[in-house]
Design a binder for these strands. Structure first.
Length: 110
DNA sequence: CTCCTGACTAATA
DNA sequence: CTATTAGCCAGGA
């Protein structure tokens, strides 16, 4: 597998993976990176999502961290992300976490 | 070029 | 459970 992709190309590939996450499912940053062929690019996933325009077609809200939590980011809170996931029938624990055993999207199930 | 930062993870303590 | 350390890698100053 290609491990040395141009940074810009990698970003597009990561976003392409996110676009494939079905409604009602979530994926972790590490999963998205691995599916894109760059298992060490989890941080790049977060950066790519942060740079998305408001009118993007990329379902950025379906990406959570390895614990099933909405990763805290600078600025405004993650309430919008949680609301969008709830709209898709994704459930949250009292701790504010998604049960990855039930809602984690795995590429081979695509 | 170096240095710092971060929507990440993993391993310890 | 929390705290610390380390590895990671693209961007920005």
């Amino acid at each position: 597998m290609p491990s040395d992709l141009a940074p810009a190309a990698l970003r597009e590939r990561l976003l392409a993976v996110v676009r494939r996450i079905p409604c009602g499912w979530v994926a972790t940053y590490g999963e998205v990176a691995a599916a894109a062929g760059a298992p060490r690019a989890a941080r790049e996933v977060g950066r790519a999502l942060a740079a998305l325009p408001h009118d993007t077609d990329v379902p950025w809200w379906r990406v959570v961290n390895r614990l099933g939590e909405i990763s805290p980011r600078a600025g405004d809170g993650p309430t919008l992300q949680e609301a969008r996931l709830r709209t898709e029938q994704v459930e949250f624990d009292p701790r504010g976490r998604v049960d990855l055993d039930r809602f984690r999207w795995e590429e081979h199930l695509d």
